[in-house]
Design a protein around this nucleic acid. Structure first.
Lengths: 386, 386
DNA sequence: AACGGAATGTTAACCGTTGTAGAAATGGCG
DNA sequence: CGCCATTTCTACAACGGTTAACATTCCGTT
């Protein structure tokens, strides 16, 4: 049914080899021959069989990207960046959604889709560092994210400790003293990096660490943030600021505040993490840590493609840049467009008086780069502990 | 380097074919032989080469999903559903992001990734119906979305006309008379389906169609909604309701209202389309049309896998179910948790008085199923116009 | 006329797996 | 013990494209 190279060759009156040469831009071909072959290809709607090709080469041109979820904006944006970078390098990205399922993640570790993919970019969630380090498969792999810290693997992440510390310091700087944290407190005994940064900032500011202000959540989603905030608001002494370990939870927390009649940031200031698009259009807009996703994607692909080409150098630990984006949940709403107090309580048409269109689009509302850890740590981690 | 079936066979002392048979659960194998082969596989860490396999069968087990964007929550959710359904059927989904680029979409039409994928699910954006209908490739394809209406292709979508009509009728029902619409007004001469439904509802309610209230936008993103709303608010006679053709624009529009001191829904009511998670956590929560994405994904895969198996029946036109989710941007905020008017204008710790945690999670706030077009239209569309 | 390079052809092997066809071993039964 | 029917296993040829190793022809130079 489908045309093969042989059919093309026959129709063009050349040998299979010549047809193949045309396909692969072999330089020494008479223009007229090339034209004939190309014409034949077009007429037969010839498409090379990539399975055959990759069977021959041992290279498939596919990369797998394994992430916990696709309906999380953070991972969606990440996937978009990685796909872009990959196609620039001639790779096709195959998405694998693990849903944070340990078994699904084990499949990723142990040679998924054998021989069809040339490498994996893996953002683990359920698996422990220890389990990851037991991996016994030579498919090149790059690990993403702060979650586990296995030694001897290529790993790319933002410096969560420093970023979280900056986020918390920012809350201190805007006058908050009782700062809560929402996220996973401990993964297999080790405190998470974000919690570490948070505690560092508290200590530096001379504030006490109050475990009742640290809320443990399972999924890092909006509902988690919502529930956590409700718990915090029920405390005898509620916090005056909350640092959520990601933006989705900050959004849920914000919603909980609105429902409960708590004013943000007057009563409670909020900071998130990730800088997903949603934060720039929330009401109020959400202060957050903005990691350089494009840089992350670029580093990941650069590293992975090097490994695929046989680079055997010791595992690398790469840190990507981030900035603190200070927005309304910590700075407040600019006075000139604060909403009126009373207001006609229900109405049909009469348009309320309103003023000029604000000049800046919401994307640029109070963006303040504060700190930047662009440094790239290249740490040689052989088999020994670093 | 990597173990082949031949190596396994040698080590187990059997022929290659026998090893292959073990791999494929061929019934007639002596248990002792099977055990030997399996042991050899484990020892050599054997992984079948899928390229070779698919070269042999002519089937690859891959599907392509081509969508305009991955960082749009709607497509991210859609991709998640489709990936789930596909893996249940043993297919692996290959994501292709076209960014609404016409050339990228043409590649999708004309046999992308030749022979590696068995079928395509395609949500076109840039290409006209006419251009799609010129497609000349026999790879099974299912079209998604309301955008183009080419005849003779399998097509799955929500009934946008009816849904948009319901959305607009809902605005009429809550007392609005000057209802704006934000979206693409015309694609190559044909009014979009959503605009059609909007106009039907206006006509049915005896309201005039005012073209100045219809805002044309390019990208259907938050920034578009934001800009469109600002334009509407500048009109001498601004609308008292806005129907945005998707949720992202509704979110942008909401943000524009907040910035401009316009109260939602008191001054302007808002309705979106898609029911992305973000709408359930917006402040206020956004009324929207909720399409049955799971159903859509299921239909798409059902249809596509049938085509792949050689089903040659006439092209089908499938409509998926939807519901109207009425939320705060049209119904208003329940009185008992409306926020206080004045409020301490900037403060440190003193917690404001607040009341009990509301019983229902935000997901269930004022959900009202209103209408359901679950009917599936099977239309035989041969070569003639229908 | 001899030579060199460009352009193409021929043939065969190979990538790893599976289908076909059939051989060899096994077992049941008269 | 012989015969037939299974069961168990094997040899070989594909699948479509690439590549190696030459062989050949054509053309233009010297």
């Amino acid at each position: 049914m489908a045309a093969r190279l042989r059919d093309v060759a026959e129709r063009a009156g050349v040998s299979v080899k010549t047809a193949s040469n045309v396909l692969n831009n072999y330089p020494h071909i008479k223009p007229s021959t090339r034209a004939r072959v190309e014409k034949a290809m077009a007429e037969l709607k010839y498409r090379p069989n990539l399975s055959a090709r990759s069977l021959k080469h041992g290279r498939a041109g596919f990369l797998a990207l394994a992430v916990p979820a696709m309906d999380s904006p953070y991972f969606a944006e990440l996937a978009a960046r990685i796909t872009e970078e990959a196609s620039a390098l001639g790779f096709i990205v195959l998405l694998d959604v693990t849903r944070g399922d340990a078994d699904a993640e084990r499949v990723v570790l142990e040679g998924m889709r054998s021989h069809v993919i040339d490498g994996v970019i893996f953002s683990p969630l359920a698996l422990s560092a220890e389990e990851i380090s037991r991996r016994d498969d030579d498919l090149p792999m790059v690990l993403l994210g702060e979650r586990p810290v296995p030694t001897g693997f290529d790993h790319i992440a933002v410096d969560s400790v420093a970023a979280s510390r900056a986020a918390t310091e920012h809350l201190v700087a805007v006058g908050r003293r009782r700062i809560a944290a929402v996220g996973r407190e401990a993964v297999r005994g080790t405190a998470s990096e974000r919690l570490r940064g948070y505690r560092q900032a508290l200590r530096a500011a001379g504030l006490p660490y109050d475990p009742t202000l640290v809320i443990d959540v399972p999924h890092y989603d909006r509902a988690d943030g919502h529930a956590a905030m409700l718990r915090l608001l029920e405390l005898p002494e509620p916090p005056d600021a909350v640092f959520c370990f990601n933006d989705l939870m900050a959004i849920g927390a914000l919603r909980a505040c609105v429902e409960s009649g708590v004013k943000v940031p007057e009563d409670v200031a909020l900071v998130g993490f990730d800088d997903i698009a949603e934060t720039r259009f929330a009401n109020p807009t959400i202060t957050t840590i903005s990691p350089d996703l494009t840089g992350l994607a670029r580093e990941a692909l650069d590293l992975l493609s090097r490994r695929i080409s046989g680079d055997e150098s010791p595992a690398r630990e790469v840190r990507v840049a981030w900035t603190l984006e200070a927005r309304e949940t910590t700075l407040g709403v600019p006075r000139r467009r604060r909403r009126r107090a009373g207001g006609q309580d229900r109405a049909g048409s009469p348009p309320p008086e309103r003023r000029k269109r604000p000049l800046q689009p919401p994307d640029s509302v109070s963006a303040t780069s504060r700190r930047n850890s662009a440094r790239r740590v290249k740490r040689s981690t052989g088999s020994a502990e670093s």
